[in-house]
């Protein structure tokens, strides 16, 4: 339990997707003009990361990894399919996003209306594939840890995009030098926020 909590907090603050690894920056910069849309996209990212990371975890450990096919019988124990990793992960992500979109549309039209346009965008959000690849390289012990890691990364991304959207809303009333307006000042702000997040780096749970 302690272990799970530690992974959760670590993936939100210390290994924040945006401030430590710059993943999902494209949509982070494009969809952070208003807080309400930022909340919608952030929620969709939490949702999709929480689903795709455990699925990719199962895929990695029961199909792709060297020796992972041992459950089929001793003959298959020596097979290493890890070269298929990228294609499998991205296919799972694209398919899951499509599936999630259909399920949400069927069972919760109101949620669909608020997330609707963002869901298809998420398939090419780097933070989703990044979640799968970090899960692979950090070799989590069981599916619980992988799920918690996925959710935590999603929450970290959510916090980052909502925070920058709030700042950008306020920024409208300030006098930014013309060439720095828009994109430039957003970069510098994100850098400053990243410096603030660096202070979490020493925390050990």
């Amino acid at each position: 339990m302690e272990n799970l909590l530690s992974i959760f907090v670590k993936s939100i603050f210390v290994d924040n997707m945006i401030f430590a690894y710059f993943l999902g920056m494209c949509s982070y910069l494009a969809v952070s003009k208003k807080v309400t849309t930022a909340v919608g996209l952030g929620a969709a990212v939490i949702f999709v990361l929480g689903i795709t990371v455990p699925i990719n975890y199962l895929l990695e450990n029961f199909i792709l990894k060297e020796g992972a096919l041992a459950w089929l019988g001793a003959d298959y124990a020596g097979i290493d399919l890890s070269f298929l990793g990228f294609i499998m992960f991205i296919a799972v992500i694209a398919a899951m996003v499509q599936l999630v979109e259909m399920v949400v549309e069927r069972f919760s039209p109101s949620l669909y209306a608020s997330l609707g346009i963002f869901l298809p965008l998420i398939a090419v959000n780097c933070s989703i594939l990044g979640g799968a690849l970090f899960m692979q390289s950090r070799a989590y012990e069981n599916i619980g840890e992988a799920t918690v890691f996925g959710l935590g990364s999603g929450v970290g991304w959510f916090l980052a995009i909502v925070a920058i959207a709030a700042i950008r809303e306020k920024l409208r009333y300030s006098n930014v030098p013309a060439p720095l307006r828009g994109l430039g000042i957003t970069f510098i702000l994100t850098g400053l926020m990243g410096v603030a997040f660096l202070s979490f780096a020493g925390i050990k749970l």
Binding site: P179, R181, L183, G191
Partner: peptide, 25 residues
């Protein structure tokens, strides 16, 4: 540290846009 990369890109954007006025938002 990672945050400085963002600040450097921000500064590059600043320099580029002050040389190339039509890019200003």
């Amino acid at each position: 540290m990672p945050p400085m990369a963002l600040v450097i890109v921000g500064i590059i954007i600043w320099v580029q846009r002050s040389r190339n006025q039509k890019l200003i938002e």
